[in-house]
Simulated scan of single mutants.
Amino acid sequence: MKIFAYTDGSSRGNPGRGGYGVVLIAPEKRVKKEFSMGFRKTTNNRMELLAAIVALEKLKAPQQDITIFTDSKYVCNAVNKRWVFNWEKTGYKSKKNPDLWQRFLRNFRKHQVKMEWVKGHAGYHWNELADQLATQAADAEDLKIDLGYERQENFNF
């Protein structure tokens, strides 16, 4: 069964309040699910990456065939140009967001993943919905703590 994920991240300031949005679609089963969450202090790149992670983590069975659509060149290029695999080999030396990249790769390896870049704010319906979910989450009242970001920030003196 083919699954499509439309993902987006948002940050109100960089760093600032942020959120992610995910729309998962399984056309054969005629199922669409939406996920989002907001954080009190994070970055846009972290939210873009977290959206892709959440899409993978929501899959119930291993070896799912999933295409992730993202408007983040950071996320798409890191995978498609295989940068993240080199970062992993070097222990993410001097790279941002190693906590999320490690989590991404754990989930990436469980499935058959294809990454597709789409231009943001260009009228792609499901990508626009993911964007709305992400911005609404960033603007919500009960924001979570992005522990990975805040711990990292506290160590950068």
Rank of each mutant, 00 (worst) to 15 (best):
E34T: 10
V84E: 03
K81V: 06
R40S: 12
W126Q: 07
K93Q: 08
I3M: 10
K110F: 04
Y124D: 11
E28R: 15
E88P: 03
K95A: 06
I25M: 12
A130D: 01
E150D: 10
P98Y: 02
A140F: 06
W83S: 05
I25F: 13
E141R: 14
R40D: 13
V118I: 13
A55F: 05
A140S: 15
N45M: 11
T43I: 13
Y20M: 09
R12G: 07
G38M: 08
R40F: 13
M1D: 15
S10V: 08
L147H: 14
K93S: 07
F85E: 08
L129V: 14
K41P: 09
K33D: 14
I145Y: 06
G19C: 06
K81Q: 13
T7C: 09
E34L: 07
A55G: 09
D71H: 05
L143K: 09
D142Y: 13
N80Y: 01
L143W: 07
L24C: 06
W126F: 14
I53C: 07
D99T: 04
L49C: 04
K114I: 09
F39E: 05
G123M: 10
N77S: 12
Y6A: 01
Q152F: 11
L50K: 14
T7P: 02
E48V: 05
K73L: 12
T70F: 03
V84Q: 00
A55K: 05
G9D: 02
V23R: 03
K2F: 12
V113W: 02
A137F: 00
M115R: 01
N80E: 12
L49Q: 04
K32P: 08
K33R: 15
K114L: 10
L59S: 11
K2P: 09
N44R: 11
D99Q: 08
D146K: 03
G120L: 04
K114V: 12
W117N: 06
G148A: 13
V22I: 08
F69M: 07
K33M: 13
S72H: 05
D131V: 02
C76L: 00
G16P: 11
R151N: 15
W117T: 08
G120V: 03
N107K: 08
A55E: 06
